[in-house]
Design a protein around this nucleic acid. Structure first.
Lengths: 187, 187, 187, 187
DNA sequence: CGTTAATCGAGACGGTACGTCTCGTCTTCAT
DNA sequence: ATGAAGACGAGACGTACCGTCTCGATTAACG
């Protein structure tokens, strides 16, 4: 069981880390800054998180609220809701610098890569699997659709705009993307 | 004008940088390592490239061959050719670590971000604009299709698999993606 | 009142401290090592001794047997007996590292300096004051001899060899030193 | 050959180290403090000195003027001159803390011990060997005197007072010590 | 054809952050 | 209610690189 002291210290560190991530991005985040802002010892961070990658991942999760995937009755509605939530969460300033750094780290450190994917990919896949199956049941989309590629088609463009092309993640983008994904998946 | 000596030195440095990028990824690449392997002074690197990001970008370009976008007579053929070329280039081991690091740097440093996008995004957009317009002319895809989102739909899933989800970039993926993009763009 | 438990714990700590002093010297002695070897908590040590210097001093006293100063009937005999005892105690390997560290600490921390001098200097002065006065009574040494400097002349060379010059503290040294001190003090 | 820059940097670091040695003693001297006060990088210190012990030794030598051993025509005069010089040099406040720390280090680290002894012992032995031989020639002291123990008899009490007993190193002490050493060495 | 001005390699420099170690205090838990 | 166990804030350790700055040695272009 975590003691009262541990919990408070943990919160202070995650809070400081989250702030600094927003301010400077992942690459320019330093353990020393986090420790100083949280009035914590560096060793406490290394003891509990083991390094920058896991701390940053935890700090992101700490500040992140979950995206909800309501059952709107149509695949278009479900999809739009998830995309809108995703874009709203990722579009805020500073998020790109954060995610890009974590992404880079994930390529280098396999253990961290796995944790990153669990947090960023698998959990979000689960958001849509229900909606996809319901849509198949309603005959809105082809029953033999390739599920993994469908998810790539949905999430890929969002990450691509955010990190690679730098184009805006606005409502119009969500609209057009929803429409084109529907067309791609139509039976 | 660049002398013979400058050119030889430039090549040695780019070659060393490209090797180290493949070996250790972008984040773990250091100027000192590059200088040591190329038997060059650090100053020579800073004089000619100004820092790690621009050196890495140049080193990538140095080793990279271009993707060709043949006119196969059908949008499906054109698209498959470009995707196959892209997947072939990006799928090689070590590329992910390289691109992830550059991506991270691009979020932090705006000047580098612009150079990175010119090299990685705009040049590749141009590869497909011709094919898209030809397809529109042939009536294969809707004339009022949103071009930017269509490109996101094509390139996004590739980058997403490479850097985010880590799923394999194989031929089957190219097939299914081609089919779904065609469906999405159909008139 | 000290309980049975306290006493056992105290002994274990002093024993561990004494062992580690012999093994690594004073400078490389750490409270954490002592606590670990004695299966004791660090706090127990800080509560009872307050820090490394006082613990080390106590640990030395714990393991040290006293030097006896027999009345041999002649100043030469008394002096030789004390010097032989001193050399025997100090000459054992590891003692130099211990004493050097304590000496250094004594220069920095005045309170500890006082305790150190009480343990290392004043008690040993008392060993010889009786012998000196007896020798004066017998007319072996000058009555107006400067007592403090005489003691410096006896103890100084021993410490000097042990800590400064590193020359051996052997029986020959005791012989010659005894002879020269006698000559210096002769009436 | 040392460049201009190296020399200036070397001087600044030695000067800062010497100041801090006087202020805080050897044990409380830190490389970081020295680097900060000298506006130097820590690596410069580790590159040139390799650690605290050698830096401190060099800093002492940097500030120390040499003791001269004039030929006064009598052993008493020669001896008094050397002792007065030694006491004048070692008696200044802060020196005890410095020497005590170096002494402790010398016990632990054999390589440093050798360097320390060369600087503190052998050079000072040479100061007196000439005077001793001249005194033997003049018949002032016994020809068969044990030279090493004679030097212990001279230097030992000085170090002992300084570091162990803490008694004052004043002129009276020099007088009495000179007299007693003469008596000890008389033929 | 020799002199002069660049440019190179090499690497020391002032810094920053790293990840580790130990300090002395403070908290928890079991006996 | 005492003591072991060990987490905590603090801060120095020695290392790795950063980007800048001298150095001579080697070219290369010009007088």
């Amino acid at each position: 069981m975590a003691s009262k002291r541990s919990a408070a210290c943990r919160d202070g560190i995650l809070c400081a880390a989250a702030e600094l991530l927003e301010e400077h991005g992942y690459l320019d985040l330093t353990i020393e800054q986090v420790a100083a802002r949280a009035h914590a010892g560096k060793q406490t961070i290394y003891r509990n998180w083991g390094g920058k990658p896991r701390l940053a991942l935890d700090a992101m999760a700490y500040k992140a609220s979950t995206i909800d995937a309501p059952d709107t009755g149509s695949f278009a509605g479900d999809l739009r809701a998830v995309l809108a939530g995703l874009v709203g969460k990722m579009g805020s300033p500073g998020k790109a610098a954060m995610l890009g750094g974590l992404l880079a780290e994930a390529q280098t450190d396999p253990a961290f890569g796995q944790a990153f994917r669990e947090a960023m990919v698998q959990s979000r896949c689960r958001l849509l699997t229900g909606a996809v199956e319901r849509a198949v049941g309603r005959g809105e989309i082809a029953a033999d659709i390739d599920r993994p590629v469908l998810l790539d088609l949905i999430y890929g463009p969002v990450w691509y705009r955010l990190l690679v092309s730098g184009e805006p993640l606005d409502e119009g983008f969500v609209d057009v993307l929803t429409k084109q994904v529907l067309a791609a998946a139509a039976p």
